[in-house]
Structure formats: C-alpha cells, structure tokens
Write a protein that binds this DNA or RNA. Structure first.
Lengths: 331, 331
DNA sequence: TTTTTCAATGAAAACGTTTACATTGCATAA
DNA sequence: TTATGCAATGTAAACGTTTTCATTGAAAAA
C-alpha cells in the first residue's frame, strides 16, 4: 500500500504539502495541487485511517462504536439500521459489537472499542450501573444510551415509554375480557423488563384484576426462554388465558410453544407482544403488538451522538419516543 | 488515557520492557515483571489497538472486517453470529459493515476496511466480478467469500448448494401436484439468484412442467420486492398455484401479499421459501422452506479466514454445505 | 536599494506501539 | 586475572499521518 511518502516523492513535494492537499487546507499552489492529485490517482493512494486516528487523538477519527445486546432481535437490527443511516450521511464509519446478553463479552468489547479510539459510542448497557461504562463517560467519551440508561450520571438516552407501552398492551387484553394475563419478561437485570412489569401491574390494577405472582416469569430475553417459560405457564394448574410477552424473541418463542400445544389464538389463549415486526401480519394469527419506532430510535441516537462529539459540553438529553399498540387478531 | 510511557516511568523501566511484559516475551526478570504489572493495574493502562496496528502492519492487529449485503435478512444475521463466535474465541474483534444492497456503499466500506488495516475480510460481494475486491485479494488481503464467489480468481468460498436447494423446493411443489409454479427471485446481479433459477428450471423439466417466462420475477432481494412481485403474479390472467421465493425477506413479503388478498395457503396458493427461520413454525401457515445452515456458514468462513491469515499461501478452498428442505404445511 | 510582507513549501516532532540492535553486569570458564 | 557468555534491560527507528514552526523567494513598500 502506497503511503503519503510515496505520493510526496512522486510529486516532488514534502508530505506536509500532500497532507494539505488531502485536507484541502489553504495556501497550496494550484499547479502543485494538481500534480499531487495526479500522483495520488496514479499510486491509487488511500490515506490510512489508523495512522490518522493515532496522530490526532481527539480529532475526527470518524469512527463510532455501537454495542448492542442481541443482534438476533429484529428490534436491535432496526435500531442499527437507523444508526448506520445517519452515521453514513455524516461520514462516520461504525464498528459494531454484539454481546449477545453476555456481560463478560460486553466488558471485553467496551475495552476493545476504547482501545480503538472511537469518537463516540452508542450502547444498550446490560446493567444501569455498569462501572466501566460510567467511567468511560466520566473520562469524556461521548456516549448515547438506547433502550436503557445509566444511573447516577448524566448521559443522553433515547428510549420508548416502556411503562405506557406495556400498559397499552395489557389494558387492551383486560378490556377484551381476559382475566388471567401472564407476563413473560426478559432479563430481570435490564431496566425495561421492570418498567414493563410496572405497566403490566398498572393495567391490571386499573382493570380490577388481582395480581398473581405465578403469572410473571422472568427469563433471559431470548427465543428459547420464550419457548420454555410459556410452557411453564401452560402447565400451571390455572393456566393464563392471555400472555403479554416482553420482547420480539420471547413472543416468537411463546408462539412456538402455543402452536406445539395445539392451542388456538386467541380462542384458547391470547397474546400481545412488545416489539412489532414488519411481518407481524404474516404470523399465525396476525400479531397484536406494541410498536417501538426502532429505526427512529437509532437515527436519533446517532444524531445526538454526533452533536455531542461536536459539542461535548452540551447538557444531556433524555429522549422518550412514543410506543403504539398495533391491534391485530391475536388478542 | 495512560500510555506505555506512563507505565514505564512509574515502574522505572523503559517502554521496551513494558512491551515485553505485555507480550509475555521471554527474558524479563520476575521482580520487574511484577513491578510493571502493578504499574499497569494502578494506571488502569490499556494498550492502544490503533498504535499496535499502525506499528506492526501485517502483524496481528486482531481485527477482521465483515461486509454483508443486508442485515435485515435473518440469514445474514445468523451468518454474522457464526462468524462472531469463532472470531471471539480466537481473539479477533470484528468491524461489521452492512451495505444494504447498495453498491456505492459497498465500495465505500471496502475502502474504509482497507484503510483500517484489517487482517482479513469476510464478504458476500454484490457482484462476482467486483474489480476493487479482486484487486484487494490480489494485493494479498486474506478474504473469504460467503454465499457468493468471485470470478477469475482463487478465493475461499463458503456457500450452500443453491441449485440443489432450489431443486428440492420446486421438485417438492411439483410432486405435490402444483402445475403453475412461480419463482420470485432476488437481485439478478447476484449469483445465487441465477443458480436458484437453474434449480427451479431443472425441477420443472424433470417433472414435465413447461417453463413459463411470466412466472419468473426478479427484484431487489428485499421485503418490499416480495410484496410487490407477488402482487404482480396474482394479477396475472393465469396466476400461479404455487410460488417459490428466493430468500427470507421475499418470502415474508409474499406472505404479506397473499394474506392481504385473503388467499388460503396452500389451498389457493402454496409457498416454499429459500432460507428457513427459527420461527418458521409460527408463521401462517407453518412455512415449508429450504434451510441453509447459516451459523455453520459463518463459523466455517471465520475458520477459513483465520487459517488463511496464518498461512496466506494455503490453496483456496470452496466449501459447499448442504441445503435441506424443511417440510411444513405451506405446500 | 533595502526592508517588509506574504504565499508556498519544507523539516521535524508527535501519536503509542514493536523490534532490531546495543549495552550492562554478573557468573562462569580459561 | 582476563575473557566469554548470557540474562536483563535500554535506545532508537519505524509505522503513516497532522501540525507547528521555520525557511524560501518574490512582490510590494520604504
């Protein structure tokens, strides 16, 4: 790979001048500029982002880090799409890490990202009180959280109103006449699981339904936990007549179990999921779901991050987006 | 951020010795080793991957690039999971880029990856004769292709037997008595679209079904094209009685259209898709699909790439995995 | 003419590592 | 005693940029 040195030699100038042309800084003679550009073409020279990042520490390395909990979840895929779209437009590249709900992996990836001298980070932290992450924020790394925040520290956050979203879902079930409404939650350690439980409880209370401990099941936010926990619910002496699932993957897992057991939806059991999918309509039956504007979340996060990179002292913003209930025929 | 220099000072040694400890190279006194490790702890020193990569060009920067066509497609998400799993085990980080079937974006990302001095690249190229990519291979960058290869050049490839996979699907439809079998394909520019057409034609011929030009529709491999092209098929004077869809997203899109039109599956129209999904069973109706071992593909690709990084002269391998027909009730 | 000014360019340091080579002692061999 | 060898460590160059400061030379001002 040809470097600036080769270009400089071929154009009979110093590397400084080449650099000036590259960053179209002022005061370079038109003739030499052309000569240098020609040399660049001929050598097929491409600047090294690595060297650039090393040299100008806090200058634009044009690199963002993204750290997400589970790439199997279509919600995060959409968030990612949103992030990428805005980043691309602003000339940032992305280094994307998926920690698959594994906190050890999350820790490692945080270190790697830091070590790659990223300009900023978008993350859905596994826990709200992550010391390592909080330290990075304190040390001045621009960070935007999505889906979850960070305690005791001011940081930009973009998320949906989880309590209200869950309330919408469960209230809808209650109003439709279901009495034993279960909640299959994700990881207990992630805030949204708890907030959605809160919305769930609110809706029960408002509709005069007594809360039954047995009808709440916490899992690990993955497909398999949806399968397994739904099975447990169905085996209860008094099984639920409706289930509210805590995320995309759990919903799909629960559907699997319900179908395996040959139950009719919503006849035998109704289901409303958190997170909508583009093809929810093609599920059996078309799924009623709480829609998070995932792409929008990603876009906003990207925007906030780039803003913060350009103005690190801007006060932190918490951006709460709207969740919407998409009524279809599973409830 | 503390650097090696700070560590060296605090431990009263030269940076060379610190480096030796870090790479646990031989010949460093146990006492000083301990002193240095202590300093590292105290300063919370983390080596800079950027500096490391810059310094030792073709030495282990421990960074792989992955360039995929469409992260919305669950197939690629699974491939990615496989790649990541193996990479993680071998201490490689991944910089992942999604070009969303946009060739301009692909080009840009190729440049960025190159410019980031990655050690190797896993890619599903948009076209088989991509000059830029071929040049990178020729220039010695270790590359493994997934899902598609590269013409006129020896490069490792991991993919599924597309012809046979498509044959399995269409043969099954034919044997089930369907006569007018349509094929909704992806982008005409990607090899697998054509290969799957070949399998489709083979199956038709073998079953004595005459080929009808009108029943093949090429699109852009995305959900929306599935929706639109399926609609066009249904509006035909003689609509198909079965449809074979060219990938995950197309399948989902076609399902959407079929449902919107209130048709029964497989009564009014049967459907078999290329690419299985974990939750195919929860679709309406449970989807018959050709399963590609996506995670396996990713793992193999990762393995091949790491092998090649360690031994650049190893002859290229073409690894063809098995596709399997998952018979469910949509056909 | 001599000085001043300014556009155009170059030299060299710095970013944080790795590594080839040089240096230091000390133990052992002669 | 003087060599010799070897373990432990240090010095400095290199990776490919950006950037500060210095230098050049010609035009403008004195």
């Amino acid at each position: 790979m040809a470097g600036m040195n080769d270009v400089a030699k071929r154009a009979n100038v110093s590397i400084a001048t080449v650099s000036r042309v590259l960053n179209n800084s002022s005061n370079v003679n038109e003739a030499t500029r052309i000569r240098i550009l020609k040399a660049i073409k001929e050598l097929n020279y491409k600047p090294s982002r690595v060297a650039k990042r090393l040299r100008s520490k806090s200058m634009s390395g044009n690199l963002l880090g993204v750290l997400i909990p589970d790439i199997e979840n279509p919600f995060y895929v959409d968030v990612l799409r949103g992030i990428e779209e805005v980043a691309y437009k602003n000339n940032y590249a992305i280094i994307m890490c998926n920690f698959g709900q594994d906190e050890k992996k999350e820790k490692l990836y945080l270190e790697i990202l830091q070590s790659e001298s990223i300009d900023g980070l978008i993350v859905a932290p596994a826990r709200e009180d992550d010391l390592q992450l909080k330290k990075m924020v304190k040390d001045g790394l621009p960070v935007v959280c999505v889906d979850r925040g960070l305690t005791e520290i001011d940081v930009d956050v973009v998320l949906v109103d989880n309590i209200k979203g869950a309330f919408l879902a469960v209230d809808h079930l209650a109003k439709s006449g279901y009495k034993r409404i279960a909640y299959i939650a994700g990881l207990p350690s992630i805030p949204s699981s708890k907030l959605r439980e809160e919305g769930y409880r609110n809706a029960l209370e408002l509709n005069g339904i007594e809360f039954d401990e047995q009808l709440i099941k916490y899992g690990n936010s993955k497909y398999e936990s949806g399968v397994e926990l739904c099975k447990q619910l169905l085996e209860l002496p008094l099984p639920p007549d409706a289930v509210f699932t805590g995320n995309n993957l759990i919903t799909l897992g629960a559907l699997e179990t319900i179908h395996t057991n040959g139950l009719a939806i919503p006849g035998d059991i109704a289901i409303v999921g958190f997170d909508d999918m583009q093809w929810s309509n093609s599920l059996n039956p078309p799924l009623t779901a709480v829609r998070q504007p995932a792409i929008e979340i990603g876009k906003r996060a990207s925007e906030l991050l780039i803003q913060r990179i350009n103005d690190p002292s801007r006060p932190a913003i918490q951006m709460i987006l709207h969740a919407e209930l998409m009524k279809r025929s599973s409830s």
